[in-house]
């Protein structure tokens, strides 16, 4: 079995895995990072979104070997030094989650949305950008509010 090596949440990891091992399986089963979820088998739901070198990726549609040598960030690696990421705070503050199953993917997608689209996100942009993420619980209303607020808070915390 081939060896894959990458940096996950700042820590170098390497393991022997079957070539068909998906990144999400590698994270969940080998590293026991179960915050990244699997909600579908057709790359539709976004519950599995992680960052690979700062870019949002669906880890259910990526083989572990494809991210060889990359920096992977999962939901577990978003809070720094015991302090929640502003987007995590925003989801809690604006009740952007109910069952929590879509939440890790939503938050990871939202953070990257801010990387690409900036801190002033209007409702239309947020809704369009969420096209790859499904939530069955919230009706999106509060997710949109949370992302709007979280995006601004990311600027404030970056400036601080």
């Amino acid at each position: 079995m081939p060896t894959v090596s990458m940096t996950v949440n700042g820590k170098p990891v390497s393991a022997e895995v079957e070539p068909r091992t998906l990144l999400v399986q590698f994270l969940r089963e080998h590293l026991r990072l179960t915050g990244t979820h699997v909600g579908c088998d057709t790359s539709q739901c976004g519950a599995c979104v992680v960052h690979v070198d700062g870019v949002a990726m669906k880890s259910c549609t990526t083989f572990a070997w494809q991210v060889e040598g990359c920096h992977v960030t999962t939901i577990e690696g978003l809070a720094k030094d015991g302090k929640l990421h502003p987007m995590q705070e925003a989801f809690r503050e604006h009740h952007g989650l109910q069952c929590g199953f879509c939440t890790p993917g939503m938050i990871m997608a939202a953070v990257e949305m801010v990387y690409r689209k900036g801190h002033d996100l209007d409702e239309k942009t947020i809704r369009e950008e969420l096209d790859g993420n499904l939530c069955r619980c919230t009706g999106y209303h509060n997710i949109v509010k949370a992302i709007h607020a979280g995006a601004r808070a990311m600027r404030d915390s970056a400036g601080a």
Partner: peptide, 21 residues
């Protein structure tokens, strides 16, 4: 009141059935 359960969900530390081994 902001939800008590949210901390584990927003940090990826919930325990859903498939998370259990």
């Amino acid at each position: 009141v902001r939800r008590k359960e949210d901390l584990r969900f927003i940090t990826g530390r919930g325990h859903y059935t498939d998370d259990i081994s």
